[in-house]
Design a protein around this nucleic acid. Structure first.
Length: 308
DNA sequence: AACCGTCTCAACCGCAGGAGC
DNA sequence: TGCTCCTGCGGTTGAGACGGT
C-alpha cells in the first residue's frame, strides 16, 4: 500500500539534517533505486548518506527489501504459497525470514502480515489460541487439505488435457499427503537449509512420512487419518515446478488405518463426507457451525459439504 | 452521504548477534 | 575484554482502504 501522506512544508524546508520518517515519497524511492542500481546494496547507513536520503540505513534497507526490490511479488497469496506458509510455520514457528526464503518474491514482512491478518483472524473467530493444538489440528485437517484440493482443482481447470493427466497420476497412485506436509517432528529436510527458495517441488518430494497423532482423536492404535490428495502434473506448474508433482508416501503404520483417499477415481462429494467424518472425529470440540466459520467464504464445495 | 468498525500492510521499534577495533 | 557500529529479525503500530449500516 502506498500511503499518500504529503511531506509537510516544515519537513521540506526546515528539515536540515533531520531524518525523515513515515511513508516514502516517489523521489526518495527513485534516489534509492538509482543508487542501488549504480552501487549495489549493503552498508545501509553509508548508502543512505551517499544517496542523499534523509533516512536511516534501516529504513532504506526495509524499503528496498520489502518494496522496491525488482523481484518482489505483490498481490494475493496463491493457494500454493498459503499451503507452504502453513506447513513451514508449523515446522519453524514465527521464523518469518526463514519461511520467506522458500517463497520466491515474498518478504518476511508480507508473510508475517498474512499470518497475522488471515491465520490469526481465524483463530480469533474460533476462540482458540493460534498456537493451540486444536488450532493446529484445524489447519492440518481442514485448511491444508482444502488448499491442496484448491490447487488440484485449479490445475484441472487450467490444464487442457487435465483428464489424461489425472488418470495417469491416479494410475501411478502418486499422492501427496497432508500429514506429511504438516508434521513438525520429522527430521530437518535437506532443502530447508540448502535449496534455493523456489525449489518447492524438491521440498515436497523429500517429505518423509511420520506417524500422526491427533489431539482429541481416537488413539493411533485404532485410527490414523490420512488424506491422499492426487496432484496432477499441471499442479506443479506453479513456482517453476516443471516435472510432475509427486510425493509418494508409504504410511508407515503398523496399525489399522482409516484412509481418506482423494483420488480421481472417486467423486469428491463422497470423499468429502468421508473426510469430514474423520475431521469431526478428530476435532470433536468444533461443531459444524464452527467449521463453517473456519471455512473460507468463497468455498462453495466446503459449504455444500456442510449442507449450509 | 456520513459514520463507524474492521482489515490491510508499509513502516517503525527494540533487541540480538556479529564484525571490527 | 569491552565498546561501537551495522545488520537482520520479530513484534507492533497506525494511516488509509474498504465494507456495512
Amino acid at each position: 500500500m502506498m500511503m499518500a501522506r504529503e511531506v509537510s512544508s516544515e519537513e521540506e524546508a526546515g528539515g536540515g539534517d533531520e531524518l525523515r520518517r513515515g511513508p516514502w515519497t516517489v523521489e526518495e524511492d527513485l534516489l534509492l533505486v538509482n543508487y542501488i542500481a549504480a552501487h549495489g546494496e549493503g552498508r545501509w547507513n553509508a548508502l543512505a548518506r551517499c544517496a542523499g536520503l534523509k533516512r536511516t540505513g534501516k529504513s532504506c534497507r526495509l524499503r528496498w527489501l520489502n518494496y522496491l526490490r525488482p523481484d518482489v511479488r505483490r498481490g494475493n497469496m496463491t493457494a500454493e504459497e498459503q499451503l507452504l506458509i502453513l506447513e513451514l510455520h508449523g515446522r519453524w514457528g514465527n521464523r518469518w525470514s526463514k519461511i520467506a526464503q522458500h517463497l520466491p518474491g515474498r518478504t518476511d514482512n508480507e508473510i508475517k502480515n498474512y499470518w497475522r491478518t488471515r491465520v490469526q483472524k481465524h483463530a480469533k473467530h474460533l476462540n482458540c489460541d493460534v498456537n493451540s493444538q486444536q488450532f493446529k489440528d484445524l489447519m492440518r485437517y481442514l485448511w491444508m487439505p482444502r488448499l491442496l484440493e484448491r490447487i488440484h482443482r485449479s490445475s484441472q481447470s487450467q490444464s487442457p488435457d487435465a483428464d489424461d493427466a489425472d488418470l495417469s497420476v491416479s494410475a501411478a497412485t502418486s499422492c501427496i499427503t497432508s500429514d506429511v506436509v504438516v508434521d513438525a517432528h520429522h527430521p530437518p529436510l535437506a532443502m530447508a537449509d540448502s535449496t534455493t527458495s523456489n525449489d518447492s517441488a524438491a521440498m515436497w518430494q523429500q517429505h518423509q512420512a511420520p506417524q500422526m497423532s491427533i489431539a482429541g482423536a481416537p488413539p493411533p492404535t485404532t485410527t490414523t487419518v490420512t488424506q491422499h490428495v492426487v496432484l496432477p502434473a499441471a499442479a506443479a506448474s506453479c513456482h517453476q515446478m516443471q516435472d510432475q508433482f509427486v510425493c509418494a508416501r508409504a504410511a508407515e503404520t503398523t496399525t489399522p488405518t482409516t484412509t481418506c483417499c482423494w483420488s480421481e477415481s472417486e467423486s469428491l462429494p463422497g470423499l468429502a463426507g468421508l473426510y469430514y467424518d474423520d475431521v469431526a472425529a478428530a476435532l470433536p470440540e468444533f461443531d459444524v457451525e464452527t467449521m463453517a466459520m473456519w471455512a473460507p467464504e468463497d468455498d462453495p464445495w466446503y459449504t455444500q459439504m456442510l449442507g449450509l
